[in-house]
Each structure stands twice: as structure tokens, then as C-alpha cells.
Design a protein around this nucleic acid. Structure first.
Lengths: 162, 162
DNA sequence: GCTATAACATTAACAAGTTAAGTAAATGTG
DNA sequence: CACATTTACTTAACTTGTTAATGTTATAGC
């Protein structure tokens, strides 16, 4: 995202520093949804350029990665695991099929479903990208520490139950 | 987002449960970026329908809220505080201006800049929505606890420095 | 003062998020 | 079997995310 920093505003006549008796966050920058966004962006700003060099978006990569792990998945399974809504997934899969990275086979027992699988080109792409991903993840670990990552994951999973 | 749960896959021939000697997350669902996304979505799935009833997206609402707090901001300040990239912000502001919720004034000392301000209609909209927002935030607090929220915010801010 | 450079906002082009509606296949009930 | 309902995926329409390029205004160096 890389929003450029600016010098502090010359003046800011009101309310930015007022009391907050309710103790609820009133500045957008202190709200939980934004904090989650900022933290995620800090990570994605490292992964995104790397993936772009391989001509993938982060969503496309999630699909590739899942198909590498599970060999075949249908659209609903991909949507759930990659946390991508079905309409987005339809487009992403169409893109990946057009690039011959993924193939679809209609499921025999339920013809509403399609099973997706990596092509050999898709597998090759995965193998090329994976080491770069590991490298970045290790940088995150080096900065943040395994313990804090584990703690953060725990809190996030808990919050996700809400 | 509300991705429907599905029964576990009938069979999953390989690698989903293999050893992971590197101790790096290999399942997409365990990666930090996805965990951040899931947690955020848990929150947004509450805010979004409420905002939609008032005909706002969460991004539009962030802009409205910031202009309520700071009375006037230029685009760069809004982009930084709302964590929205300039091209998106341009469209959002155009939308809000078209709906007469926000006005723009060209800055006299620097004619590249525009200062944005809520209209009275914009202020009214803010006042209508704010109580609903507080209500939802209190539900989050009730579920998650102030202590855990504070801890999570701390970790997220730390990670955002990466 | 003039020119090169930087900064602010916008436009363009494409990918993805979001909601609602649509199509086709499966399932359940009478 | 006929019919309504549900499920899986897709399409449509709109908004936002993302990168690159453009036009305009400020600023810095000469």
C-alpha cells in the first residue's frame, strides 16, 4: 500500500485530542478493523512485489498453494480454505485456467461441482515461488518472534469466532 | 463474507497432514495474512450490513468519520488516516461529493491540494450512524474483553512496523 | 528568473470484494 | 413421478485495491 508519510498537519482545530469517556476508539486509526488492515498490509507489502514478479496476485497464489497441498478441491472447498468469495473465485479460476496453470474436471457424481487440479505448469510455478515465500516468512519471524506470532495467531483465531 | 461451511472432504489423499520440519505455516489457513483477514472479516461482517442500511461502505464511512473528527483534511491526510490509497480515495470522495455529503475547497496556499469538509447532510449522516457503531463495538468488547483487545492492538501495531 | 525535480491529485486498466440475481443439478416430499 | 426447495456455481453491477502513467503546481539549484 505504501501510503506516503506526511508532516503533521499545520493545525487541527478540534476533537482529535478530546476526552473519550466511553473508552471506545473514536479515531479511525485506533479502531480494531483498521489495525488489522495495517498489520496485514505490512506483511502483504513484502509478499505482493515478490508474487507480482511471478505474475501472481496474492489470491491467485492462495489458490495455487491450496491445490498444491490438496491435489484436487472443488470450488466450495477452495472458497472456504482460501477465504475468497465464490464470485471472486470464479474469476480467479477462469484466469488460472486461461493461463494453463489449473484444470477443471466436472465431478461425475454431482455435476454441479467441478474438481480443480494444478497442471504441471502450475506445479512448476508453485515450486518456483515457494522458496521466496519461505524467505519472507522467515524475515517476519526474525522481526516479530515465533512466540509473538503464536500469541497473535491465537488472539486472531479467537476473534474470528465472534 | 460468510463463506458457507461444508462437510469435510470425503478424502484428501496427501500432504494436508504431512510433517512440517521447517515449522513454517504451510497450510494457507494457518498463515498470518489469512488469520488477519479472517479476524477482520469477523468484525466487518457486523459493521457492513449496518453501514449498508445507511447506504455507506466501510471505506466511505471511514472518510465521513475522519472528517467529523478533524473538520477539514486534505486528500493525503485522509489517505493516510483512513488507510486508503489515493486512487480509491479519489473515487470515494467523488461519490460522497455527488451525494452532497462532502464538499471540497481548493487550498489557497497550495493549489494542488483540496480541503474536504462534511456538509450538514454529511454531519447528519454521521450522527445517525455513530450510535450503531458504538453498539457493535461494545458487542465486540463484550465478546473479546478490553484486555485482549488492548493486547491485540499492541501486537498489531508492533507488526505494522515491520 | 529558469529549469529540473519533487509532490498532489487524478486517470486508466485490470484484479478482487460485495451483494443480488440467475442457471442448472441435486434432494426431499407428497 | 411431479413439484418445491436446496445446493453449487456463475453472471451482473457496483465499489475498492493496486500499479503505472499523466497533468498540474511547488520547490530547489543554478
Amino acid at each position: 500500500m505504501t501510503i506516503p508519510k506526511r508532516p503533521p498537519p499545520a493545525q487541527d482545530s478540534h476533537s482529535a485530542s478530546r476526552a473519550n469517556p466511553s473508552e471506545l476508539p473514536h479515531e479511525a486509526t485506533k479502531a480494531l478493523p483498521i489495525a488489522l488492515l495495517r498489520a496485514r498490509e505490512a506483511l502483504m507489502s513484502r509478499f505482493r512485489p515478490m508474487l507480482a514478479e511471478h505474475d501472481f496476485t496474492s489470491q491467485q497464489w492462495r489458490v495455487i498453494r491450496l491445490l498444491n497441498e490438496h491435489s484436487t478441491l472443488d470450488a466450495a472447498q477452495l472458497a472456504e480454505k482460501a477465504f475468497i468469495l465464490p464470485p471472486s473465485l470464479t474469476r480467479i479460476l477462469a484466469n488460472l485456467e486461461a493461463r494453463d496453470l489449473v484444470t477443471r474436471v466436472q465431478c461425475a457424481s454431482d455435476r454441479r461441482r467441478y474438481l480443480f487440479r494444478l497442471t504441471s505448469l502450475g506445479e512448476t510455478s508453485f515450486q518456483k515461488i515457494y522458496p521466496d515465500r519461505v524467505k519472507i516468512y522467515k524475515e517476519i519471524e526474525a522481526y516479530f518472534g515465533k512466540r509473538k506470532i503464536a500469541l497473535l495467531l491465537e488472539l486472531l483465531d479467537d476473534l474470528a469466532q465472534f
